[in-house]
């Protein structure tokens, strides 16, 4: 009897933990939707900021964030591909493989603010770019490299051995196997990883605040040097600290809502596939 009771109690307790986690997500999303919903309309997306955030929309902020994401995508893709292939194919049986895995862990743990200040030294000081979309994109691309690589590596790792065996049987070389078997088969892992990585990159403020984004006045960048963009997270960060006009508040929550929709949208598309890959790779 007592055992049964403990069983039910413990199950209820852990269930409560699970419920609490879900409730937190629901609570956060609800509180932002409630406050930000009224700000969303067509003009909000198509106009640019006016009256220092009190009026107009966030057109160029969204565009800027998308530019940063696209750049991060372009930067991260070859790096993640190269890294994962070296890790999982060329160094498959080497002791270096474990070291590379560890490096991914460490890179994943590097605080995003460090990308910001180191990036500031490299891009602003050494290269003299001033604030530039490219600097932000490169930093974000590097920052999400672990997220993307780990997914890709897990995907490659879970490919059925018979595929590669068959390819070897056909007399294909390693590089041919990579191109004709491994890459096409694991491209889904790359895409999933990228989407999750970009979801994380979209919300980051710290790496781009010193290197890529300004408060107002930037539109589509025309070059690299001195070509900042606007962005959603920095917009929110600044307005959270400086907003004279109460009208800014509604716009502020509206911006937060848009950012959340972007981030959760990307994650929601990618997460089920990501979890599937993860399960196959680790708990098959």
């Amino acid at each position: 009897m007592k055992r049964k009771l403990i069983h039910h109690l413990f199950r209820a307790l852990t269930g409560l933990c699970a419920l609490a986690s879900c409730a937190i997500l629901a609570g956060i999303v609800a509180s932002i939707v409630m406050r930000g919903w009224s700000a969303l309309n067509w003009d909000f997306f198509t106009q640019q900021i006016a009256l220092v955030g009190a009026s107009g929309g966030i057109f160029y902020n969204v565009i800027g964030t998308l530019i940063l994401l696209a750049t991060a995508f372009v930067v991260c893709t070859p790096l993640a591909l190269g890294f994962s292939i070296v890790h999982s194919v060329y160094l498959r049986d080497s002791h270096w493989r474990g070291k590379l895995t560890l490096l991914l862990y460490l890179l994943n743990g590097v605080p995003s603010i460090l990308f910001g200040i180191v990036g500031m030294v490299i891009f602003v000081q050494v290269l003299g770019w001033g604030k530039s979309w490219l600097a932000g994109g490169i930093l974000l691309g590097l920052m999400i490299l672990p997220t993307v690589s780990v997914t890709l590596i897990e995907r490659i790792g879970s490919l059925p051995i018979k595929y590669t065996e068959a390819a070897i049987g056909l007399g294909l070389r390693k590089s041919q196997i990579i191109r004709s078997v491994i890459l096409p088969q694991s491209i889904g892992g790359l895409i999933t990883g990228l989407m999750l990585g970009l979801a994380r990159a979209a919300g980051e403020t710290a790496p781009i605040m010193f290197t890529a984004t300004i408060f107002a006045g930037a539109s589509i960048p025309g070059g690299i040097k001195e070509s900042p963009v606007l962005s959603l997270p920095y917009h929110i960060f600044i307005l959270a600290q400086d907003s004279y006009d109460p009208a800014v508040k509604a716009k502020l929550w509206g911006s937060a809502l848009v950012l959340i929709i972007l981030v959760l949208g990307l994650s929601l598309v990618a997460l089920p596939a990501r979890l599937k890959i993860h399960e196959e790779a680790n708990h098959a």
Binding site: F73, P78, L79, L81, G82, L134, Q176, P184
Partner: peptide, 16 residues
């Protein structure tokens, strides 16, 4: 088909 994934590698050089 066999070579298409390699295009992905071209991203970074394009940026540079």
């Amino acid at each position: 088909m066999t070579k298409s994934p390699l295009i992905l590698f071209a991203f970074l050089p394009a940026v540079f």
